[in-house]
């Protein structure tokens, strides 16, 4: 029996008014994949990631999650995506944002239990038990009763990771998770992400940390002009790129160390 992809992406397109940001992307995301997405700003890499949990609604193509193609086809128009279907997928495809986006009026524990309680209707004590386990995983168990405003940027991002993990997603999306952090706080967040990758969880990561991508990812995607220019193992894409655009991009990021 062959292994089913978690996501099958076919011909994915996204336009904002006249601006075609994604111009046809195909990709299979397999269980255990850790895919790093690189590209200059404006290449469409964040939009691509945001389409995968429907933060952005695709304007063309199909996304199949665990065997189910999301949305319903409409003649001559982009697929229709009902809210109920999207809330289902989003529970299985977690996302961590550049700006953390913690809920400031809830405690750390409240942030992590919110999805379990409101979306999955779990009872309070089981939700708190799961949430505390996730907080332990990101090393913040002792901050459970604090409010986000009392945390450092790195701690906030780790709480955001715990919040996403709490729903037991089968795919985690990280959208430039360290770009908003002071340099000295980047390490703690990358360590947590690396820990999650080492557990064999499937993830996709938009990042500027080329060195991190090299060490953690099993596949690297280089995007430009809304399409995948090059995809392959990190040794190949990062050390021996075939595509001229990839070569130019990496030449500008030569400061990274492998």
């Amino acid at each position: 029996m062959s292994i089913e992809p978690i996501l099958t992406i076919r011909g994915l397109e996204k336009s904002f008014a006249d601006n075609d940001v994604l111009r046809g992307i195909d990709l299979d995301v397999m269980p255990g994949d850790c895919i790093a997405i690189l590209g200059a700003s404006g290449s469409g890499k964040s939009t691509f990631l945001r389409c995968l949990n429907f933060m952005e609604i695709p304007t063309g193509g199909e996304i199949t999650h665990a065997g189910t193609t999301i949305g319903t086809a409409r003649a001559g128009k982009p697929r229709h995506y009902p809210e109920t279907e999207l809330t289902q997928v989003r529970q299985k495809v977690g996302m961590v944002f550049q700006q953390f986006n913690l809920f400031p009026h809830m405690t750390v524990l409240g942030n992590v239990t919110e999805g379990l309680r409101t979306v999955q209707r779990m009872d309070k004590s089981s939700a708190e038990t799961s949430a505390r386990a996730e907080l332990t995983r990101v090393g913040l168990a002792e901050k459970a009763d604090e409010y986000p405003s009392r945390l450092s940027g790195g701690q906030k991002q780790r709480v955001a990771i715990a919040r996403a993990l709490a729903l037991a997603p089968d795919l985690m999306l990280f959208d430039e998770p360290t770009s908003a952090l002071d340099p000295e706080l980047v390490g703690e967040v990358l360590n947590v992400i690396r820990g999650i990758a080492d557990e064999g969880r499937t993830m996709m990561l938009v990042t500027h940390e080329v060195g991190f991508a090299y060490h953690v990812a099993n596949r690297v995607i280089f995007m430009a002009d809304g399409i995948i220019q090059e995809i392959g193992p990190p040794e190949q894409v990062l050390k021996n790129p075939q595509n001229a655009r990839t070569q130019a991009f990496l030449a500008r990021h030569k400061q990274f160390e492998f």
């Binding site: 949990n53 429907f54 933060m55 809210e83 999207l86 809330t87 289902q88 989003r90 529970q91 977690g94 996302m95 944002f97 700006q99 986006n101 913690l102 809920f103 919110e114 999805g115 409101t118 979306v119 999955q120 955001a160 919040r163 996403a164 729903l167």
Partner: peptide, 16 residues
């Protein structure tokens, strides 16, 4: 708007 996105990302509905 990030608050809306964070809610959506954990599967919450508009109302919630």
């Amino acid at each position: 708007p990030g608050q809306w996105e964070a809610g959506r990302a954990i599967g919450m509905r508009y109302r919630e």
